[in-house]
Amino acid sequence: MARPRPEPVQVVKQRRDAALKALVDGVPYIRFLGVQFDRRGDELTAIMPFQDKLIGNPLLPALHGGATAAFLEITAIIGLSWGTLWEEIERGAFDAETLVGGDLPRLPKTIDFTVDYLRSGLPRDAYARAQINRSGRRYASVHVEAWQDNRGRPFAQATGHFLMPRRDG
């Protein structure tokens, strides 16, 4: 049986990156904080480049707890959306073109979010990854870890519960 020829790598990459970019760029607050996403296959790493406006304690100086919390929550929401979107794109159920055209999927809604501040956030770039521990039809549970210079020394972690968007049809 002849397998269909795999698509050229550039085409696949371009489609996935365009879908991710559309998802991220659609959210004003992500742009406000300057958060970006780096994609390797289906794995995402969120990056929050340092800016003065993210500072909470100018004496140390340290990142504001609110900026850290927002960064973690953004990582969780995009991670969750990307998980569902990825499957749909790969199945051919979701057209990346529609997404780029501004027809974005509905985002999960935060039910609760708990942040542990492990050490103060330094005035440097921060990184975060989300781990989806449960993703059901209605509810999802996500854990996020954020670090700066050293992956083994996270400066904050969070757990949140989310209400998944209804997917009718």
Partner: peptide, 10 residues
């Protein structure tokens, strides 16, 4: 965004 509300609460 919830994150902005978090910053306010914090």
């Amino acid at each position: 965004h919830g994150g902005a509300v978090s910053a306010l609460m914090d």
